[in-house]
Every structure is written in structure tokens, then in C-alpha cells.
Amino acid sequence: MKSTRLSLSPRAAERVIKVFVWAVALSIMAVLVSIVVFILYKGLPVINAGFLTEIPRRMGREGGIASPIVGTLLVTALAVLLATPFGMGTAFYLAEYTRDGAVTRIIRFSAESLAGIPSIVYGLFGFIFFVMYLNLGWSVLSGGLTLAVMILPTIIRTSEEAVRSVPTIYREVSFSLGGTKWQTIRGAVFPSAVRGIANGIILSIGRSVAETAAVVLTAGSALRMPDGVFAPARTMAVHFYILASEGISMDNAYGTAAVLIILIFLINIAANMLIDRLATKGR
């Protein structure tokens, strides 16, 4: 073993390090708490029934955030509905149907690479492909499709982990009863993996709700209530960004951010409840 650079006895070094590590961890916590508390402190007083149900007026200086809320929900719902079948299908294919080979390596490489691509690049792609090339315009549909591609790798990864964590014995029992591969997947593997898959979907909902750069370039920033998937829409994250960066209304910006954070809180709680149930079920 190398000698410690500090001329401290190992026991003293141990104590110093412990204090240091605790201090770092606690200050990270403090920063997190301070961000959340600050936004809620400033934003909660702004939130009332009118704020949640009225459409923004005068660029968001007055009125509420009803249309950004609806825009967020529509874009997110569309993204998750589109990405889930593809993500789950990929996961089942990777985990149940193939051994590692050239094809699975390429699929995995693509999924991992997609996971690392920055949201602004998704925005550029969504803009040039969905908005311009497919001529969908700035719309809920363009935004949903772009986010679907963005969350696909998350759903693939979490679903594959969930499917792989199903004990082999479940499959063996199903096969020994004469079940086909498909019957085994549907009757034995899927029911045991469904909570893990659901957790991945919830994480993706969180990512979609929080995304700004990719949706502003594809769904647009229209303030009116979207009346269908072809209508442009502004999500809450985009609304917050525009209000805050252009200094339109700090109060309404805080209010929007508070609603966003509460929504993400709820999404996280739902995900954790699922993980807990998953853990107790495994025992």
C-alpha cells in the first residue's frame, strides 16, 4: 500500500475523511433542498384555481397556465404511447429471443447512443424531420414524436432489466406445461416484469414533462389551447423558460415552476411506490 500523502495516522485520516465525506454529501442535499424550497416558497402563493384553469393572457403576464398544462399532458401522453410498444418490443427481443450477436450489438449500441444524444440535437432532428420534412408543422404530434425517440432508450433499458430479472424457473415451468414461447412471455414473463416496465415508463413521463429544448423546436410555443394533435402547443417547461428568460412575469414563472416540480414529485412518488412493491414482491 502507498503511504498516505498527509502525515496523519490511518485512524486520524479515517476520521478526517469521514467528516469530509459527510460534509460533501450533506451540502449536496442542502443545495437540492434549497432549490426545491425556494421555487415552492415563491410559487405556491401564485397557484390557485384560476391559475390552473385559465388560459394565459397578454403573453402570460395575466391569466393562468391551463393551455401549457394541457400541452404538457398531450405531448407527454403521445410520447409515452408511441415509445412504449417499441421500447418493450425491443426489450423482449433482446432479453428473450436472441443470444448476443452482431444484430443485438447494433441494437444495443443504437439504444445506448440515443440515450446520450443531447436534447437540443433531438430538437434539431425533430424540427427538420417531423416539422419540415414530414410537414407536420409545430404541433403536439411533432413534439410527441420527438420526445418518443428521446425516451425510447430509457424504456428499452428499464424494460430489459425487468424482463431479465424474471427467474428462469418461471419460463421453464411454462415450457414444461407445453407453453409456446409467446404463451410463456405473455403468461409467465410479462406479469412478473410489468412493474419494472411501468417504472421505466414513469421515469420517461418525468423526462418528457421536464424537457424544454427538444419541445420548443418541435411543438412550438403557441399560447392558445391545443385543439388536437396537429395544433401547436406550449408545454409548462417552455412556458416557464419564456416567462423567466424574457422577464415577462416572475410571479407566473414561479407558479409554473412550482406546478412542474409538484408534478415531478408526484411522478417520483409513484415510481418509488412501484419499486417498493417490486422489492417486497421479490422477497
Binding site: 410498444p85 417499441f86 418493450m88 418490443g89 425491443t90 423482449f92 427481443y93 433482446l94 428473450e96 429471443y97 447494433i106 441494437i107 443504437s110 439504444a111 447512443s113 440515443l114 444524444i117 440535437v121 433531438y122 434539431l124 432532428f125 427538420i128 424531420f129 420534412y133 425517440v149 425510447l152 432508450p153 428499452i156 409456446t180 414461447k181 409467446w182 412471455i185
Partner: peptide, 28 residues
């Protein structure tokens, strides 16, 4: 045959991430 159909379907779905990456690269 019934067992083969889901496999083909899953394979088709699994190609989505490859095509997404290819499309993104190509269009950018």
C-alpha cells in the same frame, strides 16, 4: 408459426432504435 409471429414483430420493433439513430445522423 404462431410462435414465430411475435418474434418477427419484436424484431421489427427492435429495429426502431437503429432506424432512429440512422435518421437522426442522416438528417443532421
Amino acid at each position: 408459426l404462431k410462435g414465430d409471429l411475435p418474434e418477427r414483430l419484436f424484431f421489427a420493433l427492435a429495429l426502431s432504435s437503429i432506424s432512429a439513430l440512422a435518421l437522426i445522423t442522416a438528417f443532421i
